[in-house]
Design a binder for these strands. Structure first.
Lengths: 212, 212
DNA sequence: CTTAGCTTGTGAATGATTTCACAAGCACTC
DNA sequence: GAGTGCTTGTGAAATCATTCACAAGCTAAG
Protein backbone atom coordinates (compact mmCIF):
# COMPACT_ATOMS: atom_id res chain seq x y z
CA UNK A 1 0.00 0.00 0.00
CA UNK A 2 1.10 3.53 -0.75
CA UNK A 3 2.14 5.66 2.18
CA UNK A 4 -0.54 7.84 3.66
CA UNK A 5 0.41 10.99 5.54
CA UNK A 6 -0.44 10.98 9.20
CA UNK A 7 -2.08 14.37 8.72
CA UNK A 8 -4.48 12.77 6.25
CA UNK A 9 -5.48 10.06 8.72
CA UNK A 10 -5.96 12.65 11.45
CA UNK A 11 -8.28 14.65 9.22
CA UNK A 12 -10.26 11.55 8.28
CA UNK A 13 -10.90 11.01 11.97
CA UNK A 14 -12.22 14.56 12.27
CA UNK A 15 -14.37 14.21 9.17
CA UNK A 16 -15.89 11.08 10.64
CA UNK A 17 -16.74 12.80 13.89
CA UNK A 18 -18.44 15.61 12.02
CA UNK A 19 -20.28 13.26 9.69
CA UNK A 20 -21.77 11.43 12.65
CA UNK A 21 -23.02 14.69 14.14
CA UNK A 22 -24.26 15.83 10.77
CA UNK A 23 -26.16 12.64 10.12
CA UNK A 24 -27.88 13.04 13.49
CA UNK A 25 -29.23 16.40 12.33
CA UNK A 26 -31.00 14.67 9.47
CA UNK A 27 -28.89 15.75 6.52
CA UNK A 28 -28.50 13.10 3.85
CA UNK A 29 -25.70 14.57 1.73
CA UNK A 30 -22.76 16.87 2.26
CA UNK A 31 -20.29 18.61 -0.05
CA UNK A 32 -16.54 18.66 0.34
CA UNK A 33 -16.84 22.36 1.10
CA UNK A 34 -19.17 21.84 4.04
CA UNK A 35 -16.99 19.05 5.38
CA UNK A 36 -13.92 21.24 5.02
CA UNK A 37 -15.54 24.08 6.90
CA UNK A 38 -16.20 21.80 9.84
CA UNK A 39 -12.63 20.60 10.08
CA UNK A 40 -10.93 23.91 9.43
CA UNK A 41 -9.49 22.88 6.10
CA UNK A 42 -10.27 23.33 2.39
CA UNK A 43 -12.55 21.48 0.04
CA UNK A 44 -9.60 20.46 -2.14
CA UNK A 45 -7.93 18.96 0.90
CA UNK A 46 -10.99 16.93 1.74
CA UNK A 47 -11.25 15.58 -1.79
CA UNK A 48 -7.55 14.83 -1.94
CA UNK A 49 -7.65 13.02 1.40
CA UNK A 50 -10.48 10.83 0.22
CA UNK A 51 -8.96 10.27 -3.22
CA UNK A 52 -6.15 8.22 -1.70
CA UNK A 53 -8.69 5.56 -0.82
CA UNK A 54 -11.20 5.68 -3.63
CA UNK A 55 -14.01 7.73 -5.01
CA UNK A 56 -16.94 8.18 -2.69
CA UNK A 57 -18.94 11.12 -3.99
CA UNK A 58 -21.26 11.95 -6.86
CA UNK A 59 -20.31 14.87 -9.06
CA UNK A 60 -22.74 17.70 -8.77
CA UNK A 61 -24.20 16.15 -5.60
CA UNK A 62 -21.53 15.69 -2.97
CA UNK A 63 -21.30 12.74 -0.63
CA UNK A 64 -24.00 10.64 0.96
CA UNK A 65 -23.42 11.26 4.65
CA UNK A 66 -24.13 7.72 5.72
CA UNK A 67 -22.09 6.07 2.96
CA UNK A 68 -19.12 8.32 3.58
CA UNK A 69 -19.28 7.61 7.32
CA UNK A 70 -19.16 3.92 6.61
CA UNK A 71 -16.36 4.30 4.10
CA UNK A 72 -14.18 6.31 6.49
CA UNK A 73 -14.89 3.92 9.34
CA UNK A 74 -13.72 1.14 7.06
CA UNK A 75 -10.59 3.05 6.02
CA UNK A 76 -9.67 3.71 9.65
CA UNK A 77 -10.32 0.10 10.57
CA UNK A 78 -13.21 0.91 12.90
CA UNK A 79 -15.60 -1.67 11.53
CA UNK A 80 -14.31 -4.01 14.18
CA UNK A 81 -13.78 -3.46 17.90
CA UNK A 82 -10.28 -2.95 19.29
CA UNK A 83 -9.28 -4.08 22.70
CA UNK A 84 -7.13 -1.80 24.81
CA UNK A 85 -5.15 -2.29 27.97
CA UNK A 86 -4.27 0.67 30.15
CA UNK A 87 -1.03 0.49 32.05
CA UNK A 88 -0.86 2.76 35.07
CA UNK A 89 -3.97 3.32 37.18
CA UNK A 90 -3.06 6.79 38.41
CA UNK A 91 -5.11 9.86 37.68
CA UNK A 92 -4.47 9.84 33.96
CA UNK A 93 -5.03 6.12 33.57
CA UNK A 94 -8.26 6.44 35.54
CA UNK A 95 -9.37 9.39 33.43
CA UNK A 96 -8.78 7.42 30.24
CA UNK A 97 -10.54 4.33 31.55
CA UNK A 98 -13.74 6.32 31.88
CA UNK A 99 -13.25 8.44 28.75
CA UNK A 100 -16.39 8.18 26.64
CA UNK A 101 -14.57 8.91 23.42
CA UNK A 102 -12.86 5.55 23.72
CA UNK A 103 -15.83 3.33 24.23
CA UNK A 104 -18.15 5.05 21.78
CA UNK A 105 -15.73 4.42 18.96
CA UNK A 106 -15.29 0.75 19.54
CA UNK A 107 -12.23 0.79 21.77
CA UNK A 108 -12.85 -1.52 24.70
CA UNK A 109 -10.76 -1.41 27.83
CA UNK A 110 -10.10 -5.06 28.65
CA UNK A 111 -7.48 -4.57 31.33
CA UNK A 112 -5.94 -2.01 33.67
CA UNK A 113 -2.56 -2.63 35.29
CA UNK A 114 -0.55 -1.02 38.06
CA UNK A 115 2.46 -1.87 40.16
CA UNK A 116 1.17 -0.25 43.35
CA UNK A 117 -0.33 -2.97 45.61
CA UNK A 118 -2.72 -0.39 47.04
CA UNK A 119 -4.36 -0.04 43.64
CA UNK A 120 -4.34 -3.69 42.62
CA UNK A 121 -7.74 -5.25 43.12
CA UNK A 122 -9.63 -1.96 43.06
CA UNK A 123 -12.12 -1.37 40.27
CA UNK A 124 -11.91 1.25 37.57
CA UNK A 125 -15.03 1.63 35.46
CA UNK A 126 -15.90 -1.98 36.05
CA UNK A 127 -12.45 -3.31 35.27
CA UNK A 128 -10.37 -4.71 38.09
CA UNK A 129 -6.84 -3.32 38.34
CA UNK A 130 -4.31 -6.15 38.09
CA UNK A 131 -0.67 -6.46 38.90
CA UNK A 132 1.82 -5.32 36.29
CA UNK A 133 3.54 -8.66 36.72
CA UNK A 134 0.49 -10.32 35.10
CA UNK A 135 1.03 -8.38 31.88
CA UNK A 136 2.84 -11.04 29.87
CA UNK A 137 0.44 -13.82 30.78
CA UNK A 138 -2.65 -11.68 30.15
CA UNK A 139 -1.38 -10.38 26.82
CA UNK A 140 -0.68 -13.92 25.68
CA UNK A 141 -4.18 -14.94 26.68
CA UNK A 142 -6.33 -11.93 25.77
CA UNK A 143 -4.27 -10.72 22.82
CA UNK A 144 -5.24 -7.07 23.27
CA UNK A 145 -4.58 -4.82 20.29
CA UNK A 146 -3.38 -1.59 21.89
CA UNK A 147 -1.50 -0.70 25.06
CA UNK A 148 -1.93 2.78 26.54
CA UNK A 149 0.96 3.78 28.79
CA UNK A 150 0.02 6.12 31.64
CA UNK A 151 3.06 5.57 33.84
CA UNK A 152 5.84 7.92 34.96
CA UNK A 153 8.49 8.71 32.40
CA UNK A 154 11.18 6.58 33.96
CA UNK A 155 9.03 3.45 33.84
CA UNK A 156 7.67 3.91 30.32
CA UNK A 157 10.44 2.43 28.16
CA UNK A 158 10.73 -0.74 30.21
CA UNK A 159 6.99 -1.31 29.99
CA UNK A 160 6.96 -0.56 26.27
CA UNK A 161 9.66 -3.18 25.85
CA UNK A 162 7.67 -5.69 27.85
CA UNK A 163 4.35 -5.24 26.09
CA UNK A 164 5.86 -5.25 22.60
CA UNK A 165 7.88 -8.36 23.45
CA UNK A 166 4.65 -9.93 24.66
CA UNK A 167 2.97 -9.30 21.32
CA UNK A 168 1.37 -5.85 21.41
CA UNK A 169 1.53 -4.09 18.04
CA UNK A 170 0.31 -0.61 18.95
CA UNK A 171 1.28 1.71 21.78
CA UNK A 172 -0.20 5.03 22.83
CA UNK A 173 2.24 6.79 25.13
CA UNK A 174 1.12 9.39 27.65
CA UNK A 175 4.43 9.39 29.49
CA UNK A 176 6.56 12.47 28.84
CA UNK A 177 9.42 10.38 27.42
CA UNK A 178 9.99 9.55 23.77
CA UNK A 179 9.84 5.78 23.35
CA UNK A 180 11.60 3.37 21.06
CA UNK A 181 9.61 0.39 19.84
CA UNK A 182 10.51 -2.45 17.49
CA UNK A 183 9.86 -2.03 13.78
CA UNK A 184 6.32 -2.94 12.88
CA UNK A 185 4.83 -1.59 16.11
CA UNK A 186 2.59 1.46 15.70
CA UNK A 187 3.43 4.20 18.16
CA UNK A 188 1.81 7.50 19.06
CA UNK A 189 2.65 9.86 21.85
CA UNK A 190 0.59 12.47 23.63
CA UNK A 191 2.86 14.80 25.52
CA UNK A 192 0.90 17.37 27.42
CA UNK A 193 3.92 19.33 28.58
CA UNK A 194 5.06 19.69 24.97
CA UNK A 195 1.66 20.97 23.94
CA UNK A 196 1.83 23.63 26.62
CA UNK A 197 5.34 24.51 25.56
CA UNK A 198 4.25 24.99 21.96
CA UNK A 199 1.62 27.39 23.27
CA UNK A 200 4.24 29.20 25.33
CA UNK A 201 6.37 29.53 22.20
CA UNK A 202 3.39 30.91 20.31
CA UNK A 203 2.69 33.46 23.04
CA UNK A 204 6.34 34.47 23.29
CA UNK A 205 7.11 34.69 19.60
CA UNK A 206 3.94 36.24 18.36
CA UNK A 207 3.08 35.20 14.84
CA UNK A 208 6.03 32.85 14.52
CA UNK A 209 3.89 29.75 14.29
CA UNK A 210 2.16 29.48 10.92
CA UNK A 211 -1.57 30.10 11.10
CA UNK A 212 -3.63 27.08 10.27
CA UNK B 1 9.85 36.97 12.69
CA UNK B 2 10.10 34.18 10.16
CA UNK B 3 7.65 31.35 10.43
CA UNK B 4 8.82 28.36 12.41
CA UNK B 5 7.30 24.97 11.71
CA UNK B 6 5.32 23.49 14.54
CA UNK B 7 7.31 20.30 14.12
CA UNK B 8 10.47 22.25 14.88
CA UNK B 9 9.03 23.65 18.10
CA UNK B 10 7.80 20.21 19.14
CA UNK B 11 11.29 18.79 18.67
CA UNK B 12 12.88 21.63 20.61
CA UNK B 13 10.67 20.69 23.52
CA UNK B 14 11.90 17.09 23.32
CA UNK B 15 15.52 18.17 23.04
CA UNK B 16 15.09 20.25 26.16
CA UNK B 17 13.66 17.36 28.12
CA UNK B 18 16.56 15.15 27.13
CA UNK B 19 19.14 17.83 27.85
CA UNK B 20 17.81 18.19 31.38
CA UNK B 21 18.13 14.46 31.96
CA UNK B 22 21.51 14.41 30.34
CA UNK B 23 22.80 17.24 32.45
CA UNK B 24 21.71 15.37 35.56
CA UNK B 25 23.95 12.45 34.53
CA UNK B 26 26.92 14.78 34.65
CA UNK B 27 27.69 15.21 30.97
CA UNK B 28 28.93 18.66 30.05
CA UNK B 29 28.68 18.55 26.26
CA UNK B 30 26.57 16.76 23.67
CA UNK B 31 26.73 16.41 19.90
CA UNK B 32 23.84 16.88 17.51
CA UNK B 33 24.06 13.15 16.80
CA UNK B 34 23.53 12.17 20.42
CA UNK B 35 20.69 14.63 20.75
CA UNK B 36 19.11 13.29 17.58
CA UNK B 37 19.33 9.72 18.81
CA UNK B 38 17.39 10.65 21.92
CA UNK B 39 14.58 12.29 20.03
CA UNK B 40 14.32 9.79 17.22
CA UNK B 41 15.52 12.15 14.53
CA UNK B 42 18.73 12.93 12.66
CA UNK B 43 21.71 15.08 13.49
CA UNK B 44 21.05 17.29 10.47
CA UNK B 45 17.53 17.87 11.70
CA UNK B 46 18.77 18.90 15.13
CA UNK B 47 21.24 21.37 13.67
CA UNK B 48 18.66 22.76 11.24
CA UNK B 49 16.12 23.21 14.03
CA UNK B 50 18.60 25.16 16.11
CA UNK B 51 19.89 27.16 13.16
CA UNK B 52 16.57 28.99 12.88
CA UNK B 53 17.35 30.66 16.18
CA UNK B 54 21.08 31.13 16.17
CA UNK B 55 24.30 29.24 16.51
CA UNK B 56 24.77 27.49 19.81
CA UNK B 57 27.50 24.91 19.31
CA UNK B 58 31.23 24.76 18.87
CA UNK B 59 32.54 23.00 15.77
CA UNK B 60 34.43 19.89 16.64
CA UNK B 61 33.00 19.94 20.16
CA UNK B 62 29.22 19.90 20.05
CA UNK B 63 27.01 21.83 22.43
CA UNK B 64 27.47 22.73 26.07
CA UNK B 65 24.55 20.94 27.69
CA UNK B 66 23.78 23.69 30.15
CA UNK B 67 24.05 26.54 27.65
CA UNK B 68 21.88 24.77 25.12
CA UNK B 69 19.25 24.05 27.80
CA UNK B 70 19.13 27.69 28.65
CA UNK B 71 18.99 28.73 25.00
CA UNK B 72 16.11 26.40 24.21
CA UNK B 73 14.24 27.44 27.33
CA UNK B 74 14.60 31.01 26.16
CA UNK B 75 13.44 30.17 22.63
CA UNK B 76 10.35 28.41 23.95
CA UNK B 77 9.61 31.27 26.33
CA UNK B 78 10.11 29.19 29.46
CA UNK B 79 12.34 31.64 31.26
CA UNK B 80 9.23 33.06 32.86
CA UNK B 81 6.34 31.25 34.55
CA UNK B 82 3.02 30.84 32.77
CA UNK B 83 -0.26 30.78 34.59
CA UNK B 84 -2.86 28.28 33.55
CA UNK B 85 -6.54 27.87 34.31
CA UNK B 86 -8.20 24.50 33.94
CA UNK B 87 -11.83 24.49 32.91
CA UNK B 88 -13.69 21.33 33.81
CA UNK B 89 -12.87 19.54 37.06
CA UNK B 90 -13.82 16.06 35.89
CA UNK B 91 -11.39 13.17 35.73
CA UNK B 92 -9.25 14.68 32.99
CA UNK B 93 -9.17 18.12 34.54
CA UNK B 94 -8.22 16.59 37.87
CA UNK B 95 -5.52 14.48 36.25
CA UNK B 96 -4.02 17.56 34.61
CA UNK B 97 -4.20 19.62 37.79
CA UNK B 98 -1.88 17.15 39.49
CA UNK B 99 0.29 16.44 36.43
CA UNK B 100 3.90 16.95 37.41
CA UNK B 101 5.00 17.79 33.90
CA UNK B 102 3.05 21.02 34.16
CA UNK B 103 4.43 22.39 37.36
CA UNK B 104 8.04 21.34 36.82
CA UNK B 105 8.20 23.35 33.62
CA UNK B 106 6.91 26.55 35.08
CA UNK B 107 3.23 26.20 34.28
CA UNK B 108 1.25 27.12 37.37
CA UNK B 109 -2.37 26.22 37.79
CA UNK B 110 -3.98 29.35 39.19
CA UNK B 111 -7.58 28.33 38.84
CA UNK B 112 -9.89 25.39 38.24
CA UNK B 113 -13.48 25.90 37.14
CA UNK B 114 -16.56 23.74 36.84
CA UNK B 115 -20.26 24.21 36.36
CA UNK B 116 -21.32 21.37 38.62
CA UNK B 117 -22.27 22.78 42.08
CA UNK B 118 -21.17 19.50 43.66
CA UNK B 119 -17.61 20.18 42.59
CA UNK B 120 -17.49 23.89 43.30
CA UNK B 121 -15.68 24.58 46.56
CA UNK B 122 -13.81 21.28 46.61
CA UNK B 123 -10.02 21.37 46.41
CA UNK B 124 -7.89 19.99 43.62
CA UNK B 125 -4.18 19.94 44.34
CA UNK B 126 -4.53 22.88 46.66
CA UNK B 127 -6.63 24.93 44.27
CA UNK B 128 -10.28 25.52 45.07
CA UNK B 129 -12.69 24.73 42.26
CA UNK B 130 -14.74 27.80 41.39
CA UNK B 131 -17.93 28.38 39.47
CA UNK B 132 -17.68 28.70 35.71
CA UNK B 133 -19.71 31.89 36.05
CA UNK B 134 -16.70 33.49 37.77
CA UNK B 135 -14.53 33.01 34.69
CA UNK B 136 -14.84 36.48 33.19
CA UNK B 137 -14.21 38.28 36.45
CA UNK B 138 -11.28 36.06 37.41
CA UNK B 139 -9.65 36.32 33.99
CA UNK B 140 -9.90 40.10 34.13
CA UNK B 141 -8.31 40.08 37.56
CA UNK B 142 -5.69 37.32 37.37
CA UNK B 143 -4.89 37.63 33.67
CA UNK B 144 -3.95 33.97 33.26
CA UNK B 145 -2.00 33.11 30.12
CA UNK B 146 -3.43 29.77 29.07
CA UNK B 147 -6.81 28.08 29.38
CA UNK B 148 -7.00 24.29 29.30
CA UNK B 149 -10.42 23.00 28.28
CA UNK B 150 -11.39 19.66 29.82
CA UNK B 151 -15.13 19.84 29.28
CA UNK B 152 -17.50 17.73 27.16
CA UNK B 153 -17.44 18.38 23.44
CA UNK B 154 -20.75 20.19 23.34
CA UNK B 155 -19.63 22.74 25.93
CA UNK B 156 -16.17 23.41 24.54
CA UNK B 157 -16.85 26.00 21.83
CA UNK B 158 -18.97 28.19 24.07
CA UNK B 159 -16.28 28.20 26.75
CA UNK B 160 -13.56 28.88 24.20
CA UNK B 161 -15.58 31.87 23.03
CA UNK B 162 -15.98 33.10 26.58
CA UNK B 163 -12.34 32.81 27.65
CA UNK B 164 -10.98 34.35 24.46
CA UNK B 165 -13.48 37.21 24.72
CA UNK B 166 -12.29 37.69 28.31
CA UNK B 167 -8.71 38.07 27.18
CA UNK B 168 -7.10 34.60 27.06
CA UNK B 169 -4.60 34.28 24.22
CA UNK B 170 -3.81 30.57 24.33
CA UNK B 171 -6.10 27.55 24.54
CA UNK B 172 -5.29 23.88 24.97
CA UNK B 173 -8.31 21.82 24.02
CA UNK B 174 -8.87 18.30 25.37
CA UNK B 175 -12.45 18.17 24.21
CA UNK B 176 -13.02 15.94 21.19
CA UNK B 177 -14.39 18.83 19.09
CA UNK B 178 -12.39 21.04 16.75
CA UNK B 179 -12.56 24.61 18.00
CA UNK B 180 -12.60 27.97 16.27
CA UNK B 181 -10.82 30.80 18.03
CA UNK B 182 -10.25 34.44 17.03
CA UNK B 183 -7.17 35.33 15.04
CA UNK B 184 -4.19 35.91 17.29
CA UNK B 185 -5.17 33.24 19.81
CA UNK B 186 -2.83 30.23 19.98
CA UNK B 187 -4.71 26.96 19.89
CA UNK B 188 -3.68 23.34 20.32
CA UNK B 189 -5.85 20.28 20.55
CA UNK B 190 -5.25 16.90 22.12
CA UNK B 191 -7.77 14.43 20.84
CA UNK B 192 -7.31 11.07 22.43
CA UNK B 193 -9.91 9.33 20.31
CA UNK B 194 -8.14 10.52 17.16
CA UNK B 195 -4.83 9.19 18.44
CA UNK B 196 -6.37 5.78 18.98
CA UNK B 197 -7.95 5.92 15.55
CA UNK B 198 -4.61 6.66 13.93
CA UNK B 199 -3.28 3.57 15.70
CA UNK B 200 -6.25 1.55 14.46
CA UNK B 201 -5.48 2.74 10.94
CA UNK B 202 -1.87 1.71 11.36
CA UNK B 203 -2.85 -1.73 12.57
CA UNK B 204 -5.40 -2.19 9.81
CA UNK B 205 -3.32 -0.89 6.92
CA UNK B 206 0.01 -2.33 7.81
CA UNK B 207 2.89 -0.21 6.62
CA UNK B 208 0.65 2.52 5.24
CA UNK B 209 1.79 5.10 7.74
CA UNK B 210 5.30 6.32 6.99
CA UNK B 211 7.86 5.08 9.48
CA UNK B 212 9.32 7.84 11.57
C1' DC C 1 -32.65 15.76 -25.60
C1' DT C 2 -30.14 19.80 -24.43
C1' DT C 3 -28.63 23.20 -21.40
C1' DA C 4 -27.37 25.19 -16.89
C1' DG C 5 -25.52 24.76 -12.51
C1' DC C 6 -22.95 22.28 -9.19
C1' DT C 7 -19.47 19.37 -7.35
C1' DT C 8 -16.20 15.67 -7.71
C1' DG C 9 -11.63 13.65 -8.78
C1' DT C 10 -7.03 14.51 -10.09
C1' DG C 11 -2.77 15.92 -12.59
C1' DA C 12 0.23 19.87 -12.22
C1' DA C 13 2.07 23.70 -9.60
C1' DT C 14 3.34 25.53 -5.52
C1' DG C 15 4.93 25.57 -0.91
C1' DA C 16 6.96 23.44 3.21
C1' DT C 17 9.99 20.36 5.48
C1' DT C 18 13.65 17.18 5.62
C1' DT C 19 17.87 15.35 4.06
C1' DC C 20 22.27 15.81 1.85
C1' DA C 21 26.79 17.19 1.53
C1' DC C 22 30.51 19.96 2.46
C1' DA C 23 33.26 24.11 3.80
C1' DA C 24 34.64 26.13 8.01
C1' DG C 25 36.15 25.92 12.73
C1' DC C 26 37.77 24.02 17.00
C1' DA C 27 40.85 20.98 20.05
C1' DC C 28 44.34 18.04 20.56
C1' DT C 29 48.78 15.93 19.17
C1' DC C 30 53.27 15.80 17.55
C1' DG D 1 52.43 25.57 13.92
C1' DA D 2 51.04 22.01 10.75
C1' DG D 3 48.22 17.94 10.67
C1' DT D 4 44.30 14.93 12.14
C1' DG D 5 39.80 13.99 13.61
C1' DC D 6 35.45 15.67 14.83
C1' DT D 7 31.42 18.42 14.60
C1' DT D 8 28.85 22.54 13.45
C1' DG D 9 26.15 25.58 10.35
C1' DT D 10 24.03 26.04 6.04
C1' DG D 11 23.01 26.44 1.03
C1' DA D 12 21.23 23.15 -2.37
C1' DA D 13 18.65 19.04 -3.49
C1' DA D 14 15.16 15.95 -2.60
C1' DT D 15 11.06 14.63 -0.65
C1' DC D 16 6.58 15.34 1.10
C1' DA D 17 2.09 17.92 1.61
C1' DT D 18 -1.16 21.31 0.13
C1' DT D 19 -3.38 24.15 -3.15
C1' DC D 20 -4.79 25.19 -7.77
C1' DA D 21 -7.46 24.68 -11.66
C1' DC D 22 -10.16 22.33 -14.73
C1' DA D 23 -12.22 18.36 -17.35
C1' DA D 24 -15.70 15.13 -16.44
C1' DG D 25 -20.03 13.72 -14.55
C1' DC D 26 -24.33 14.09 -12.24
C1' DT D 27 -29.18 16.25 -11.56
C1' DA D 28 -32.83 19.01 -12.54
C1' DA D 29 -35.30 21.96 -15.53
C1' DG D 30 -37.21 23.21 -19.81
Amino acid sequence: MKHIAESTVRRLSLYLRFLEEYEATGHATISSGELAESGGTTSAQVRKDLSFFGSFGKRGMGYTVRDLSIAIREILGLQRPWSVIIIGAGKIGAALAQYRGFTTRGFRVVGVYDRDPARIGTKLEGVTVRAESDLERDIAKLKPDIAVLCVPGDAAQALADRVTAAGIHAVLNFAPTPLKVPKGVALRAVNMATELEILAFGLTNDGALPVR
